[in-house]
Design a protein around this nucleic acid. Structure first.
Lengths: 117, 117
DNA sequence: CGATAATGATACGGGTCCGTAACGATCGGG
DNA sequence: CCCGATCGTTACGGACCCGTATCATTATCG
């Protein structure tokens, strides 16, 4: 049973959520940062720099920089993989989980407001 | 009849669409640019710099710069208001309408893939 | 008229991000 | 062992965006 949503509803939803994100001056994440954050919190670990780079179709430095920023915001942490010390494992944080949850509520809330057919 | 969407579905949807946006290297709009674009295409004209700044809760230069970028991308145009030449009216373009439509399809498509309860 | 207000654009200093290229650290096979 | 391959990070030059303050242009109203 697919999730039914019409193009016009999709646009309204997208706009309302983006308006909220813009107005909330704290969390102005770029599309890349958002994609990384959600991937880490929705997909099964472990997450590595190279894996994220491949999934997003970007280069490794892009991931490194995004992790710097997300780490500075406390939404994610890095840990050296002791089994293979070349690897870095990206881990979730409490603050990150809260931020993701807040985003989910934001989308859900606006979806409800928009109303179905 | 509200648009039913669960938090977990909202997150999946948000992630999938952002993944597509990131992978599509052409259209990497910031949250602000996206909010502006959708506001112009969803709300009734006329749209002014001042009005958009107020709606988004940002300063006027932010809007001016975003319009510069969106204009360079061909998604929007500016026109002097002949009635009150202090004002600038933001107008839609064919390319902009196509981009918005593409975004709508992207969201709708991923919503269908995700599936309901 | 002239003074004031309003609008959008610009200048500036600072910050972030980009892509390419190089780097140090680490692992693994011969 | 050692040499190549792999991993994540850093260096660099350039582009973009930010917020504040200021600007030129235009309208309004006494």
């Amino acid at each position: 049973m697919p999730l039914e949503i019409k193009p016009s509803q999709a646009l309204k939803l997208w706009r309302q959520v983006h308006l909220d994100l813009v107005r909330d001056h704290d969390a102005d994440l770029s599309a890349r940062q958002t994609a990384i954050l959600l991937t880490v919190y929705l997909e099964l670990p472990p997450h590595t720099v190279r894996g994220l780079a491949k999934q997003l179709g970007v280069t490794k430095p892009v991931i490194t920089r995004a992790l710097d920023t997300l780490g500075k915001l406390g939404l994610l942490t890095r840990k050296r993989d002791e089994a293979d010390r070349r690897n870095v494992v990206i881990q979730r944080t409490v603050a990150g989980a809260l931020a993701v949850e807040r985003l989910a509520d934001l989308v859900t809330e606006h979806a409800r407001e928009i109303g179905g057919s």
